[in-house]
């Protein structure tokens, strides 16, 4: 899927929020590969992206749904104030017709109860790079990659939230790298009642990227 227009940014802006990269493109391709599933089966009315950064994914997903005559609330929450502003700007610059709502916050903390069981499409390209733990938890550009031990510190906090947020027909797309131990993440999610699969995998520079896709396991 094509990247939305980001011409409203200058290269300097990417000092303050994440510039779309191989992980972003892989996630876009995974969503586009699921176009029929999303438009015909899930038919979302509430989508949530955690960590939208530039807003490229939220805008691309909104555009995809609009092309398929869908209509959904598009929520996006980022810990970084510059990313939150950028996400709103990208939606506006691409004339997104679906309602895009941006919040600055830490994961879904402020939304989890209000949206419990109501999110149909949840998307997160998290900070997945293994780093010293003290680098985790900033609100600046470092929040785009600093994942702490095994790159799992932010991911591990989102897993129970994802399980609580997803609607019965909901789907959760999560970007991971090999160092995050994808199989272990899938087994944690299994314990939370979600079944996972690897939607796609790609080697990019020094990273082995995958998109994990979770749905509610049939009871």
């Amino acid at each position: 899927m094509a990247l939305p227009s980001l011409e409203h940014f200058s290269y300097k802006d990417y000092d303050t929020f994440y510039e779309p990269s191989d992980d972003t493109y892989l996630l876009l391709d995974a969503l586009d590969a699921d176009r029929r599933f999303l438009a015909d089966t899930v038919q979302p009315s509430v989508c949530l992206e955690i960590g939208p950064g530039s807003g490229a994914i939220t805008t691309a997903l909104a555009t995809l749904l609009a092309e398929e005559r869908g209509f959904s609330l598009m929520l996006a929450v980022d810990i970084n104030a510059s990313a939150a502003t950028a996400t709103a700007a990208t939606a506006a610059a691409n004339s997104v017709t679906l309602p895009v709502e941006v919040v600055q916050g830490d994961l879904a903390n402020a939304l989890e109860r209000g949206l419990s069981g109501r999110v149909d499409v949840l998307v997160f390209n998290p900070p997945y790079v293994p780093t010293p733990p003290e680098e985790v938890g900033t609100q600046d550009i470092a929040a785009a990659w600093a994942g702490g031990r095994r790159g799992r510190e932010v991911i591990d906090r989102v897993l129970p939230q994802a399980a609580a947020l997803l609607s019965n027909k909901g789907v959760f797309y999560l970007v991971v790298v090999q160092e995050n131990r994808p199989q272990e993440i899938m087994s944690v999610m299994k314990g939370l009642g979600l079944s996972g699969q690897t939607a796609c995998t790609r080697r990019a520079k020094n990273e082995l990227l995958s998109i994990l896709k979770f749905t509610k396991a049939p009871p």
Binding site: L73, L75, P99, E101, V103, N109, A110, L111, E112, R113, G114, L115
Partner: peptide
């Protein structure tokens, strides 16, 4: 912020039970 969004937001600080609306 639309009122639809306001309807799901809450205050999640320590010691607060509902933090809503």
């Amino acid at each position: 912020m639309r009122l639809l969004t306001h309807n799901v937001l809450r205050c999640a600080i320590k010691g607060v039970e509902e933090g809503y609306p």
